[in-house]
């Protein structure tokens, strides 16, 4: 196995007195798509937020491409190659689609020619964004906003894309289109860490998956293995699993 692109070791994160992650370790190889599954409040979003530097770890290490990043500010983490499409999309509602995309490239200080060209590729990937490029993002539908959020993250030209619940609040038909686009990104070699409630959808895209429960990894394995062991996954979600981990 090649050196991992991202290596999270024994990560502990707390919000005040509440511990959200207790000693989580995971790794992602270059080109791999890894899904992060688990019930609400299991710590999935917290893990993504810790990786992108928005929340600080109390303990543990996050290594990206061989270098520790857990003490870098978010702007610098984006520059080293990790982009985050956050939970709830968080597009800038008063800015136009085009402006939102441009800001995605701001962290790496892209030259105008660069971000203009990149923007075109995402207009090609999601043609609806081109139609709406001068509309403010707040006027888009949930699905369109999700496409915008993903594209905005990709404008940073990341080597690792963090995706938080892309299907949340999006019509099923649009979700399928979105996942098709993600699959094409995967085919081009994009490494992704995907948080998703829709287990079937997630496992169809991912190579491997981890299941989190109350801040700890309770199950992990290849997507194929987990697809086959639906009872085990459900048990891990609900907390009846006894912890035999097919790693």
């Amino acid at each position: 196995m090649s050196a991992p692109l991202l290596d999270v070791r024994d990560l502990e994160v707390a919000y005040g007195a509440v511990t959200a992650l207790r000693g989580v370790s995971l790794s992602i190889a270059p080109g791999e798509v890894v899904a992060l599954l688990g019930a609400n409040g299991a710590g999935k979003s917290t893990l993504l937020r810790a990786i992108s530097g928005v929340v600080r770890a109390k303990r543990g290490e996050i290594v990206f491409d061989g270098a520790p990043i857990s003490r870098l500010p978010p702007a610098q983490i984006v520059r080293t190659g990790i982009a985050h499409s956050p939970e709830g999309r968080r597009v800038f509602p008063g800015l136009t689609v085009a402006e939102n995309l441009r800001l995605g490239a701001a962290a790496r200080g892209a030259a105008k020619a660069e971000w203009l060209a990149d923007r075109e590729t995402f207009y090609d990937l999601f043609p609806v964004l081109r139609d709406r490029m001068n509309q403010t993002a707040g006027t888009l539908s949930g699905g369109e906003q999700q496409m915008l959020a993903v594209s905005r993250a990709l404008m940073a030209r990341p080597r690792l894309l963090l995706l938080d619940e892309p299907s949340l609040g999006v019509a099923p038909l649009i979700v399928r289109g979105l996942f098709k686009a993600l699959a094409s990104l995967k085919a081009k070699g994009m490494t992704m860490l995907l948080v998703e409630q829709d287990v079937r959808m997630a496992l169809s895209l991912a190579d491997r998956a981890y299941v989190l429960r109350t801040g700890s990894v309770v199950l992990s394995g290849t997507a194929a293995a987990l697809r086959a062991d639906q009872v085990g996954v459900a048990a891990a979600y609900l907390g009846t699993h006894q912890g035999t981990k097919p790693i």
Partner: peptide, 8 residues
């Protein structure tokens, strides 16, 4: 969100 996007 500005922070997440990597704006300084």
């Amino acid at each position: 969100a500005a922070n997440i996007v990597g704006l300084d």
